[in-house]
């Protein structure tokens, strides 16, 4: 009885204050994002404008120095390389992931789940360990060089590790599921009769893909590309292990500043610059590639 009247009073309160009701539902979510995402970001934002302390802390003195320091050929080269590697990774994964996702989506039901499971399987171990495995394969005395020498294809070991190619390989390997899964979702939704209609109206497989399949799976292409591109830009484990000091990416720079270099302000500034560029790039991508049709479809 007591709880009944309390319940009614609560409901009445929310009926009078409609906005409060919406807020109370969203509160846990807002709280979570606020404490674990926005707050650290604010701290970093503040740090990026402070001077570096002698022993890794900060001195509370305002400065632009951390941002101006970034405008340096050394760092710009790292930035450019980061975007180049991420872009190439995305393109490679689109080319591998699309046929793969298509095949899985068109496989019969029994196989589909098995194949999807295989795509997700690598997630069961840490990508750190899987990247170490690639080191074992690629290093001078590694499996690949050993095999090629055993087969007398090469005499001297190829230097495969600590190259941009090694990073591309590692990234493509680690992020493949992020490309395949959204593509699979959009291809699976594709109405087969629409594809038949295209063929019926005279479209060869090439034109059918270009004019029907691709536009109708655009949401998957865009989602997959973003899910691969954005984490690739911020990656540091893969580039650290497979690229080493020779091929540094911006994630390594940030990690270096927060770690051994003990320069949190500069690390924060580098992160913010990266974030700003990525946000801008993603926005431009959605605007440019999304177009009117994607908006129409989204509606």
């Amino acid at each position: 009885m007591q709880s009944g009247t309390l319940r009614i009073r609560i409901l009445k309160f929310f009926n009078r204050h409609k906005n409060t009701r919406a807020f109370s539902i969203l509160f846990p979510c807002i709280f979570w994002i606020g404490v674990f995402f926005l707050l650290p970001l604010v701290f970093m934002g503040i740090y990026s404008f402070l001077e570096r302390g002698l022993y890794g802390g900060v001195n509370w003195i305002f400065t632009w120095k951390n941002y101006t320091r970034f405008v340096d050929p050394l760092y710009l080269k790292i930035l450019l390389r980061t975007f180049r590697i991420s872009f190439i990774t995305t393109v490679i994964l689109l080319m591998i992931g699309y046929p793969m996702a298509y095949r899985i989506a068109r496989a019969d039901k029994r196989w589909r789940n098995i194949l999807l499971f295989l795509v997700i399987l690598p997630f069961w171990t840490s990508d750190l360990i899987r990247t170490y495995a690639w080191m074992l394969i690629l290093r001078d005395t590694g499996l690949l060089n050993g095999l090629l020498q055993y087969l007398h294809i090469i005499r001297e070991p190829l230097s495969l590790l600590y190259t941009e190619g090694a990073i591309l390989l590692g990234l493509a390997y680690v992020y493949l599921p992020f490309m395949v899964l959204p593509l699979y979702a959009s291809i699976e939704r594709l109405d087969p009769s629409v594809l038949e209609a295209a063929e019926d109206l005279g479209a060869t497989p090439f034109w059918r893909f270009l004019k029907v399949t691709m536009p109708l799976t655009k949401s998957g292409i865009m989602a997959g590309s973003l899910l691969v591109f954005i984490p690739s830009v911020g990656v540091f484990v893969v580039s650290d292990l497979l690229g080493g000091a020779k091929v540094m990416m911006i994630g390594n720079l940030v990690q270096l500043q927060f770690g051994p270099a003990r320069n949190w302000p500069f690390g924060s500034a580098a992160s913010f610059i990266l974030m700003a560029i990525v946000l801008f790039a993603v926005f431009a991508y959605l605007r440019f590639a999304g177009g009117k049709e994607a908006l129409e479809e989204a509606r």
Partner: peptide
Amino acid sequence: RPYERNVNTVFQSYALFPHLTVAGNIKFG
């Protein structure tokens, strides 16, 4: 193949291209 035949089909589900306008659908062929 269907695109090599002088035959066209009206599908049970119509199978119109959702990403194209009416004109886009009609002029596809």
